[in-house]
């Protein structure tokens, strides 16, 4: 396995992206802006003047922004590892074409994750900047959340790739988004602290990778205390990246080289 081989695959990702970037670049800027405007400021006005049984110590916009940043990384990572991987394996068969060259499965997979990492860095940097513009955090603190957000995105990219590589058809992808990604988006501390969850569900939130990502981003971007030691969260996410990549390589090898 060579680094050069993986870089070629990253390059291929970039070259394809050159043709399709418009829509995704627009949503990279627009989605955080719209969410922060609607949920952070609009809904924030209701929350901050709220009459509910619980309240936050900080403005809702400030609470929400770093959580959304981690969630955006999750969505980018999982999204780029779902339908595009299915297309590579089955619809456009670009993986088959790539493997007919000197590039092997590990290089293909690492190159794929490498390209997703490039996308993640872009998406999270833009998010951090917009978050700063909204005055949810300071520039340096916002920037410090980029690394954990990218790590979160990669944890999803690696595991979702491993999952997609096993699928026979795209129905499994829709189910994954429905029963894993969206519930995590809604219940992993992005929109409200997980302490508000019923006691029997709360422990579940602790094992979701998104919660760890949200914790790291929020802790760093807001300079506040972490619930669990940040190194535990980092180690957990790194473990998911490694395990996901390993599993993905094994599965792809079994499927594409037989």
């Amino acid at each position: 396995m060579t680094i050069a081989g993986s870089l070629r695959v990253v390059e291929a990702g970039a070259r394809v992206y050159r043709r399709t970037w418009r829509g995704s670049v627009i949503s990279t800027f627009l989605n955080p802006t719209l969410y922060l405007l609607a949920m952070g400021i609009g809904l924030g006005e209701l929350v901050d003047n709220g009459t509910g049984g619980t309240s936050l110590d900080i403005p809702y916009l400030t609470f929400l922004a770093p959580g959304l940043m981690a969630a955006a990384a999750m969505q980018t990572g999982a999204g780029d590892a779902a339908y595009p991987v299915m297309a590579g394996i089955k619809w456009r068969k670009t993986y088959e074409a790539t493997l007919a060259t000197p590039i092997g499965v590990p290089e293909l997979l690492l190159g794929h994750l490498g390209w997703v990492a490039v996308r993640l860095i872009f998406v999270t940097t833009v998010f951090a900047l917009i978050m700063t513009v909204f005055d949810a955090t300071t520039l340096t603190e916002g920037m410090s959340a980029i690394a954990p957000a990218v790590l979160t995105g990669l944890a999803f990219a690696a595991t979702v790739t491993a999952y997609t590589a096993r699928l026979k058809n795209e129905l499994g992808i829709a189910s994954m988004f429905r029963f894993a990604i969206i519930p995590m988006f809604l219940f992993s501390g992005t929109f409200f602290p997980i302490e508000q969850l019923p006691n029997y569900i709360e422990p579940l939130a602790f094992i979701t990778p998104l919660w760890h990502g949200v914790e790291l981003c929020r802790g760093l971007a807001l300079g506040q205390d972490f619930t669990v030691h940040p190194l535990v969260s980092v180690a957990y996410l790194v473990l998911l990246v490694v395990a996901g990549a390993w599993l993905a390589i094994r599965t792809l090898r079994g499927r594409l080289i037989s």
Partner: peptide
């Protein structure tokens, strides 16, 4: 399930923060 998840998330989480409108 998708809208139901949203409903629960808002009921449990944001609803508790907002109270009444």
């Amino acid at each position: 399930f998708e809208p139901i998840f949203y409903l629960f998330s808002i009921g449990i989480g944001i609803g508790a923060l907002v109270g009444d409108v």
